[in-house]
Amino acid sequence: AIERGSKVKILRKESYWYGDVGTVASIDKSGIIYPVIVRFNKVNYNGFSGSAGGLNTNNFAEHELEVV
């Protein structure tokens, strides 16, 4: 089962992080479509409006993740 702290591989082909491994930061139990927040070591794009980097978290559905 996917739980907080799990290392997961991203299976969503259109994702910037496809094939990468991230760490589960949290799981939303409220029934939303993409409840699993995954944190990565790298950012997906340069930040804007003065922020240092881009996003390094993204929401995924459990079926888009594979525990490694």
Rank of each mutant, 00 (worst) to 15 (best):
G31N: 15
L55D: 12
I27V: 08
N41C: 14
V38L: 01
A25R: 07
N59I: 05
G22V: 04
K13V: 13
I33M: 12
G54W: 10
L65S: 02
L11M: 06
S15P: 01
K13D: 03
E64Y: 03
F60T: 00
T57W: 15
V67H: 05
G5H: 04
V24Q: 01
N46Y: 05
I37T: 14
N59L: 04
I32H: 11
N41G: 08
I2T: 02
S26M: 14
Y34A: 07
S30G: 11
N56D: 11
T57M: 14
D20L: 12
I32Q: 13
G5C: 12
G54L: 07
Y18E: 03
E3T: 13
I37Q: 11
T23E: 10
A1S: 13
T57K: 07
A1W: 10
H63T: 07
T57A: 06
S6L: 08
A25S: 11
L65Q: 01
E64A: 02
N58S: 15
K42Q: 08
A61F: 06
N44F: 14
G31Q: 13
E64F: 03
V21Q: 04
G50L: 07
R12D: 03
L55A: 10
Y34F: 10
V43M: 11
W17L: 01
G31A: 12
K7E: 06
G19E: 05
R4A: 13
A61M: 07
R39E: 12
D20W: 09
K9I: 09
G5K: 02
E66C: 09
G19D: 06
E3N: 11
S26Q: 08
L11N: 03
V38I: 04
I27M: 04
V43G: 10
F60D: 00
Y45A: 15
A25F: 08
Y34R: 11
N59H: 12
T23L: 05
F40G: 01
S51G: 13
L55W: 08
S26Y: 11
I27C: 05
G5Q: 02
G5R: 01
S26T: 07
V67P: 07
I10L: 02
E64H: 03
S6C: 14
G54Q: 09
G22W: 04
V67E: 04
K42D: 12
P35G: 11
R39W: 13
S6D: 13
D28K: 05
A52H: 11
Y16K: 05
I37V: 14
G53P: 12
D28R: 05
G19V: 04
K29F: 09
N44L: 14
F40K: 01
E64S: 01
G54S: 10
Y16S: 05
R4I: 15
E14D: 12
W17A: 02
L55E: 14
G19H: 05
N44M: 14
I27L: 06
E3H: 12
E62F: 15
F60C: 03
S15W: 03
E66G: 03
V67Y: 04
T57C: 15
L65W: 01
V21P: 00
G53R: 03
F60P: 01
G54P: 08
S49K: 06
G54H: 08
K7P: 05
Y18G: 00
H63Y: 12
I32C: 13
T23C: 11
N58L: 07
L55H: 11
I2Q: 00
A61E: 05
K9G: 02
V67Q: 05
K7I: 12
Y34L: 07
G19T: 03
S26R: 11
Y34C: 11
G19W: 04
S15H: 04
S30C: 09
R39I: 14
L11I: 04
Y18M: 02
T23A: 03
Y34I: 03
G50C: 15
R4V: 15
E64W: 03
K29P: 10
G5M: 01
K9L: 09
S15L: 02
S15C: 09
R39A: 10
R39N: 09
V38A: 00
E14T: 10
N56C: 15
T23G: 01
E64V: 04
V43N: 10
A52I: 12
D20H: 12
F48R: 02
S49P: 11
V68C: 09
I32K: 12
F40A: 00
T57G: 07
F48S: 15
N46M: 10
E64K: 04
S15I: 02
K9D: 02
V43E: 14
G22M: 05
N46L: 09
K29L: 11
V68Q: 08
K42T: 11
A52G: 12
A25K: 08
I2W: 03
R12T: 03
R4F: 08
S49C: 15
G50Y: 06
F40V: 03
S6A: 12
D20A: 12
R4Y: 10
N44S: 12
N56H: 08
Y45R: 10
P35A: 12
K42W: 07
R4E: 13
A52N: 12
E64G: 01
V67F: 06
S26N: 09
A52K: 08
L11Y: 03
N44D: 15
V36K: 00
F48H: 12
V43I: 13
L11K: 06
L55Q: 13
A61D: 05
D28Y: 05
V67T: 05
L55S: 14
S49N: 10
N59S: 13
N46F: 07
S30Y: 07
G22R: 05
S49Q: 11
I33Q: 12
A1N: 10
K29Y: 12
E62N: 07
A52S: 13
K9T: 04
S15M: 03
F40C: 03
S30P: 04
E66L: 10
S6M: 14
S26G: 13
H63L: 04
A25H: 10
K9Y: 05
Y34M: 07
K13M: 06
I32Y: 08
R12L: 06
N41Q: 13
S6P: 03
E62W: 14
V43W: 13
I37C: 15
S26K: 10
I27D: 00
S30E: 07
S6T: 13
K29H: 14
T57E: 13
N46R: 04
G5P: 02
G22P: 00
G50Q: 11
I33A: 15
D28G: 05
I33L: 13
N58T: 10
N44W: 15
I10V: 13
Y16I: 08
K42N: 11
K13Q: 10
A52L: 11
G31Y: 09
G5V: 01
N41H: 11
R12Y: 03
Y16Q: 09
Y18L: 02
E62H: 10
I2M: 07
V21A: 02
N44G: 08
N44P: 10
P35F: 13
F48I: 13
E62L: 14
I32L: 11
V38W: 00
E3P: 05
T57H: 12
G53V: 11
R39H: 11
Y18C: 05
S49F: 11
Y45F: 10
I10M: 01
E62Q: 09
N59T: 08
L65R: 01
I37L: 14
S51V: 12
V21S: 02
R12S: 04
V67G: 03
K9R: 14
R39Y: 12
I37W: 15
G53D: 13
W17Q: 01
Y34P: 06
G54T: 09
S26D: 14
T57S: 10
I27G: 01
Y18F: 11
